[in-house]
């Protein structure tokens, strides 16, 4: 299915490898790929948040490694990090990274449980998404309390 649509788009853009067959017949099918008109169920929202937190964490790792290196380098470096943690901007950055990490962790555990076959039904997926969001909210508040 996806291949057929991709092919027709490729044909429209005239990027056609010589061996590609164009299925012009498929062009007339109504295809709704406008994500802004979709209504997202809760499991879809937890799924996209898992992705967004993952991409954000990819960059957050740099900040974490920097702080880790500084704090382990010397006594003065450790003091520097402690000093940094007293200022609001650094606190906010660390809190955001921690929130993203805990969300990614909790949603990831749910993902592994679903791989295991738990909560794969329609109701189970909804309940899983609800539990993920509630636990993440609790973790977010807890990490806020830990940093401030």
């Amino acid at each position: 299915m996806a291949d057929a649509v991709t092919l027709s788009v490729d044909c429209a853009h005239k990027y056609i490898p010589y061996a590609t067959v164009c299925y012009h017949v498929k062009d007339t099918r109504p295809v709704n790929l406008d994500l802004t008109t979709f209504k997202f169920p809760l499991p879809a929202i937890t799924s996209i948040l898992h992705r967004i937190s993952g991409v954000a964490l990819f960059f957050g790792i740099g900040v974490v490694l920097y702080l880790l290196q500084l704090s382990l380098e010397s006594e003065a470096g450790f003091e520097q990090v402690t000093e940094l943690f007293r200022a609001t901007p650094a606190k906010l950055v660390v809190w955001l990274i921690l929130t993203g990490l805990l969300y990614h962790l909790i949603a990831g555990i749910k993902h592994l449980l679903m791989d295991w076959g738990l909560g794969e039904s329609r109701e189970g997926a909804l309940r899983g998404a609800q539990v993920t969001l509630i636990l993440s909210l609790a973790a977010t508040v807890l990490s806020w309390g830990m940093i401030w």
Partner: peptide, 14 residues
């Protein structure tokens, strides 16, 4: 694996 999956989903010809 994660960044690859995201990239191949959104950064495509389509």
């Amino acid at each position: 694996v994660g960044m690859w999956t995201v990239g191949t989903d959104y950064l495509t010809g389509r």
